[in-house]
Amino acid sequence: LPPPAKKPLTKIVSHLLVAEPEKIYAMPDPSMPESDIKALTTLCDLADRELVVIIGWAKHIPGFSSLSLGDQMSLLQSAWMEILILSIVFRSLPYEDELVYAEDYVMDEEHSRLTGLLDLYVSILQLVRKYKKLKVEKEEFVTLKAIALANSDSMHIEDVESVQKLQDALHEALQDYESCQHTEDPRRAGKLLMTLPLLRQTATKAIQHFYSIKMQGKVPMHKLFLEMLEAKV
């Protein structure tokens, strides 16, 4: 007998692994004197470039591109900060009490305090600790990122059934992965999904914080970042 064919659901996880974007760097401007404004400018510029990458990545999620353009926009407008934060969290896993915004931009508690990002630092670190405890793997992280996008609870979805179909496919991919790879913990998929409320809460805080920075007008922000920030409030 031929070996049983690999389930297409496992294929989703391997596909998401391949679709993972290349690292991008913060590259702080060396000619600018160190200040909170410089740190925030660096982070907003990094976020703007990461957004371009996230939009390209989303198109590689199986099923995403079959949604209407309007629904693709709505999901991204709701979930982009969750996706950004989840990536920071995953990069920070090998570190101790530091947030890896980029490989060349790591912030500790003191740096976060000086930049006015202490609240955000504390929240993101709470997420890091949860995933450290779970020893989350790259396969799980890429699937969770896609789930965060599909499950972003946008109020503007036109074709709810198609978005539900995408959520179901990704949810099933996670469950399928866990039932093959983590037979020792039948509740692992649930544990991972239960981290999403804290991710949503943290992203909401981050959006509010960066929106108030935008209103103060001291930090230059690129157009895509501004566009996405405005879509959230």
Binding site: L69, Q72, E227, A231
Partner: peptide
Amino acid sequence: KEKHKILHRLLQNSSSPVDL
């Protein structure tokens, strides 16, 4: 959509989307 021009444009530039 007019308000979200860049997102709209980036999504329209297709790059081998995958369907279920």
